[in-house]
């Protein structure tokens, strides 16, 4: 296969970090703009994933395994969070028949 013109053979570490920042911002945007509880929850997962990418990238830069361990722990916490969070969502839906965040506001004011 002939080499593609003007394509670098590798990318700087900063690009990975930029990608992580972009994904994190997207997660925050979803968290702020969406009104569905499940989608808001998924935006949180997206943020966690973005942070994981940063951890693994720094692990590459420092040539240490610790970043991988941290993202492993983040995964464990995300699993626990998903179990409890989805149970809460199920309970909310059972009591209110709605998934809109705006409708679950009886503690407001």
């Amino acid at each position: 296969m002939p080499p593609l013109p003007n394509l670098p053979s590798s990318v700087p570490i900063t690009w990975y970090l930029m990608l992580s920042a972009i994904l994190f911002t997207l997660g925050v945007a979803g968290f702020l703009f969406r009104r569905n509880i499940i989608t808001v929850f998924m935006s949180i997962e997206l943020m966690l994933n973005a942070v994981n990418l940063s951890f693994v990238t720094f692990s590459y830069k420092l040539k240490q395994v610790d970043g991988h361990i941290f993202s492993f722990f983040v995964m464990v916490v995300a699993a626990a969070e998903a179990a409890v969070g989805l149970a809460i969502i199920l309970t909310v839906f059972k009591n209110r028949q709605t998934l809109q965040i705006d409708d679950v506001s009886s503690l407001k004011n």
Binding site: S10, S59, K61, K63, V65, D66, H68
Partner: peptide
């Protein structure tokens, strides 16, 4: 971050199951 540092596949091999388990 130093912009010159590149990510090259195979430069870091410390992420195998063995290393993770040991840590």
């Amino acid at each position: 971050m130093p912009p010159t540092e590149q990510v090259i596949f195979g430069n870091f091999k410390g992420g195998t199951a063995l290393d993770i388990g040991r840590a």
